[in-house]
């Protein structure tokens, strides 16, 4: 099953992940004013939420990585060398 981690300190409570998720995985916690993962089992690893999250506070693990054909390969090689 796909695992989703929310970096709680990083979450700004914008609810964009709640809005964009096609399978309603997230919910907004009114008390803490951050998003929470409510239905992790429904995640289809489309990663829409991770791309949209302004803080980069969402991380996914245990999913099948699909190669993007349109990636900038020259930069991808450098990415690991960024401190």
């Amino acid at each position: 099953m796909v695992e989703i981690q929310v970096h709680e300190d990083g979450c700004r409570g914008c609810r964009m992940c709640v809005d964009i998720c096609p399978t309603t995985v997230f919910e907004y916690d009114e008390e803490k004013r951050i998003c929470v993962v409510r239905h992790q089992e429904d995640c289809i690893a489309c990663l829409s939420c991770a791309y949209l999250c302004p803080s980069g506070a969402l991380a996914h693990a245990n999913f099948h990585t699909v190669k993007n054909f349109y990636r900038d390969l020259a930069f991808c090689e450098k990415m690991e060398r960024f401190l």
């Binding site: 300190d9 700004r12 409570g13 004013r33 302004p54 803080s55 980069g56 506070a57 991380a59």
Partner: peptide, 13 residues
């Protein structure tokens, strides 16, 4: 991969 928003404390609403 975190952005500047991750440490900003402003409420995004």
């Amino acid at each position: 991969k975190e952005s500047v928003c991750a440490r900003c404390k402003r409420q995004m609403e």
